[in-house]
Amino acid sequence: MSDLLKGNFDTAKPVVDNSEDGQTLEQRFEKEALKKLGGSIAFVAKQEVVWGDEDAEQDD
């Protein structure tokens, strides 16, 4: 149970948020790093990674 909806009556159904804050640790880290981006602060956006890149495999 959460308090995501706020109003002057009780809704028919509750809104249930099972995640701690709606973001994974990975998302939280990448968001915080993005705010300080520059110089030595660089990071891999894991959701953007293209796995199995053909060029990289050929180099191997």
């Binding site: 909806l5 159904k13 809104v15």
Partner: peptide
């Protein structure tokens, strides 16, 4: 969560 909100009432 937005879908839940839409279906809360």
């Amino acid at each position: 969560i937005l879908k839940q909100v839409c279906n809360a009432d």
